[in-house]
């Protein structure tokens, strides 16, 4: 007997009506997706799972503003992005208060710092390639980074990214173009690609 799968929008409408069980199904269905975005956006050594939970708490808090015309995952990514931005701002403030310099180009020092803060599980997950790639992603401006994550890892369409990021499809294409060019430049030395052609 075929099992009936209720789509996300229907579940969210049930949540809006006070159905807790429906929300549990949604969380279960999308928890890994949200954790992926949070982890790739904010990086290792962080309480990514805690922040991913925070995303769902915000989704629940905003349940009354959900309208079925919006694709649930697009709406979810919007909340996810806002939560990541808020967390990033909080971290910047904390780093500033603690006198830790931000930015910088000494990746080896950052990798070493990462290695000290990684859990054993993260250390296994993050091999050298991953650390270098993550540093390259981190070097991107916020909008390029989020567009890249949604496109590369979540397989979102230009239209979905545009909706989640509140910008035009043309702007998304431009962000992805610049992200690719920046990544190619950032990774040139590591991949022994040579200097970009003019």
């Amino acid at each position: 007997m075929a099992r009936l799968v209720i789509d996300d929008s229907e579940l969210m409408l049930r949540v809006r009506s006070g159905d807790h069980a429906a929300f549990g199904v949604l969380v279960d269905r999308h928890k890994q997706r949200v954790l992926n975005v949070v982890y790739r956006y904010l990086g290792p050594g962080a309480d990514a799972e805690d922040i991913a939970q925070e995303v769902f708490i915000r989704v629940y808090g905003a349940r009354r503003s959900y309208v079925a015309s919006a694709k649930f995952t697009t709406w979810l990514y919007t909340i996810c992005r806002n939560t990541c931005l808020k967390e990033q701002a909080r971290r910047k403030t904390r780093r500033a208060l603690e006198g830790i310099p931000m930015g910088g180009t000494d990746h080896s020092a950052e990798v070493a710092a990462d290695a000290q803060t990684l859990s054993p599980l993260e250390a296994v997950l993050l091999d050298e390639h991953a650390i270098v790639a993550k540093r390259a992603i981190d070097s991107l401006p916020e909008a390029q980074r989020m567009a890249l994550i949604l496109r590369k890892y979540e397989g979102s369409t230009y239209e979905e990214i545009a909706e989640a990021m509140h910008c035009s499809v043309r702007a998304v294409k431009s962000l992805l173009y610049r992200a690719r060019v920046t990544l190619r430049r950032e990774l040139a030395e590591y991949l022994e690609l040579g200097e970009p052609s003019e």
Partner: peptide, 20 residues
């Protein structure tokens, strides 16, 4: 240049998130 762009994009596959 096309090879460089492709390889740098593929390297991003190495960034894996832990399971929930």
């Amino acid at each position: 240049e096309r090879e460089a762009l492709s390889r740098s994009w593929e390297l991003l596959d190495a960034v894996r998130a832990p399971a929930a």
